[in-house]
Amino acid sequence: MIRFSLRTVGLAAITLVLASIVIFIGVRLLPGDPAQVLAGEQASPELLAAIREQFGLDQPLWVQYLRYVGEALQGNLGMSTRNNIPVTDLLLQRLPVTLELTALALAVAIIVGVSAGIVSAVKQGRFPDYVANGLGLIGLSVPSFWLGLIAILLFSVTWHVLPASGFVPFTTDPAGNLRGMVLPALVLGVGLSAVLMRQTRSALLGQLSADYVRTARSKGVGRGTEVRHAMRNSLTTVVTVLGLQLGGLIGGAIITEQIFVLPGFGKLMVDSVSSRDYPVLQGAVLLTVTAYIVVNLLVDIAYAYLNPRIRLNGGTE
């Protein structure tokens, strides 16, 4: 287990370093000279040179990168060029919103998707299976930003039951915060629910016909226990799918925040692209990718935990 974890963590760390280089270079490729952005359109060449020197922009790219990483490790991601606030502060301010949104959506997706998948597999070829499959296909096909608009149209504009926008922090008004999060979390969770439902169904169907389920039945256990046996072996699939789909969830969060005007990470990212606030963009992407890599690492470890074969052999299958 320890050997396995070390290898996985090592690989993730390498990926993270390479990804940070990609991000760093990517941001340098963005149109516009950062010094120009900082100094304004009418800046004199002397001022530009001064700024370049001050921010180390005249150094070779790898020096700049190392300096950026060094600073980042101390929690300093630079200053926003738009409103001169430390990027770290901006990110920390926006982080709770996105975390809450994705966590709620994830919870919705796991609860709805996995249970629908189980029902659908257990009732294979019967009415509940058709309903679940139909809804799953629709959930898979409807783009989340359209679903968001329709949800607003129905629940806010027509029926006035839930707000379309207007985020309130949880600490200020928990009930209001949750009311505001219901629609975004549902909208964001639908696609993932559909994917999870389909994958759970197909994994469970495969496991339900396995020999060990027949063994369980031969012991006299009920259908529920049979399904539990099969489900335990389907969990690795479910966890893998969750890991793979997490990127989609993060992408979906960007749009969902845009539609429901939630002051989260995604909105920050899109706004920083349009206002050319590159230090903010760089910080936000870096933090997102870091989070994504870390969660995938956790998924790998959870996978090993769920699959005793990997856990004990300390290797891959």
Partner: peptide, 12 residues
């Protein structure tokens, strides 16, 4: 059962 390799639940 005939198949000792697959008749036990691998996760339990």
């Amino acid at each position: 059962f005939q198949e000792p390799m697959t008749s036990l639940n691998p996760a339990y």
